[in-house]
């Protein structure tokens, strides 16, 4: 056999330069924030000519309110991010949200709970959050033990949990208004509403979880290349289970934050929340296939959607058009993402 002299062969190995790589990453991660800036500018300028109200769009109070309103879907979307990074999906969060809300409000009407006075509140919160975690655990356990795809499992539990919601109180709304709770929910600390603090707090904790802990890094690895993770001895099942419990907990937390203030839950509440949450996550750039994404970018996605809602209202567009615009923007983002990623690569015409 003839030996090939290595130094005479031009090796085709060529790595991207770090600078080019970093620039690409910056674009990918900064895109959602750039989009938010564009929205702000657009609605401010357009608002000057079209606004139905006299107030400026970029009004500080207005922005704070926007953050508060983003919280219910936002908290769920943050949880959805780690589920999707892990390579799964959860379609049952809307139903979990409703069931946790019912547990929260109903438990406070139980005689022995009422006897406790205001100290029933943390107990009611605890019960609601436990409910969410238990439902998440059911999803996680099913995905883990049966090996059925999370899409199917949670599609099923979306129906099943909703059934439980109805079984609880029929088609009647469940109501209980506790003024201490309302005060808490409406309180503001350093200018921000309670709900906003929860949203930001959850974002911070999940960011730390996903970037700093072994669980978070393993969750990325599992979503990125499940077989490799299994071969490396990572216990895929428990990690997925923990993430499902976290999103269940967060769906319940979202309910706790929202219903403490509103005090009444309809059995249909929370429907389509899963779809809004997924929309926010995808706008933030998290990959559906798993292994790539960022909690912070999802926060951006959530704010971008809420800005769009408010902004369209501000310039006097029908509320109906909001759905249309968000849907089309989602598709446009997908299209742009693909075009950017494809640039420079020579693909097959398939």
């Amino acid at each position: 056999m003839t030996d090939v002299t290595p130094d005479k062969i031009v090796s085709p190995v060529k790595e991207d330069t770090p600078v080019a790589l970093q620039r690409r990453k910056l674009i990918a991660q900064g895109a959602i924030w750039a989009f938010i800036v564009v929205e702000l500018i657009f609605f401010s300028v357009a608002g000057e000519y079209l606004s139905v109200s006299d107030k400026a769009f970029m009004d500080f109070e207005n922005m704070l309110l926007l953050l508060k309103q983003s919280a219910p879907i936002g908290i769920i979307a943050l949880g959805m991010t780690i589920i999707m990074i892990n390579g799964n999906i959860d379609l049952s969060v809307g139903a979990t949200y409703a069931l946790a809300a019912i547990v929260l409000l109903d438990s406070m009407t139980w005689p022995w709970m009422q006897a406790l006075g205001d100290s029933a509140i943390p107990l009611a919160w605890g019960l609601a959050l436990l409910t969410g975690m238990a439902l998440g655990a059911i999803n996680g356990l099913l995905v883990w033990k049966t090996g059925v795809d999370a899409f199917i499992v949670t599609l099923g539990s979306m129906l099943g949990f909703r059934g439980l919601v109805f079984m609880y109180n029929g088609e009647q709304p469940t109501s209980h208004l506790n003024w201490t709770l309302v005060d808490f929910a409406e309180a503001r600390f350093l200018g921000l509403h309670t709900a906003t603090w929860f949203l930001l707090g959850v974002a911070l904790l999940l960011w730390l979880l996903m970037t700093r802990t072994v669980h978070g890094r393993n969750a990325y690895a599992i979503g990125n290349n499940r077989e490799a993770a299994v071969n490396a001895g990572i216990r895929v099942g428990p990690h997925m289970m923990i993430n499902f419990m976290i999103i269940g907990f967060l769906a319940a937390l979202s309910a706790v934050v929202f219903y403490s203030e509103s005090g009444s839950v309809n059995p249909n509440d929370g429907m389509l929340f899963e779809l809004w949450a997924i929309t926010a996550v995808v706008l933030g750039g998290t990959k559906l296939t798993g292994g790539y994404g960022s909690v912070v970018a999802t926060l951006g996605g959530v704010i971008a959607i809420q800005l769009l809602r408010k902004g369209l209202g501000h310039i006097g567009a029908d509320t109906q058009t909001v759905n249309l615009v968000i849907g089309l923007i989602l598709i446009a983002v997908l299209f742009l993402d693909r075009q950017l990623n494809r640039k420079g690569k020579q693909e097959l015409r398939t």
Binding site: N224, A228, A229, A232, G291
Partner: peptide, 21 residues
């Protein structure tokens, strides 16, 4: 392995110590 079993979104270090961070 013949088929590489790496998580390509993670860093070199995380891959080398995959499952044993």
């Amino acid at each position: 392995h013949q088929e590489l079993s790496l998580a390509d979104e993670l860093t070199v270090a995380e891959n080398i110590f995959l499952g044993a961070l």
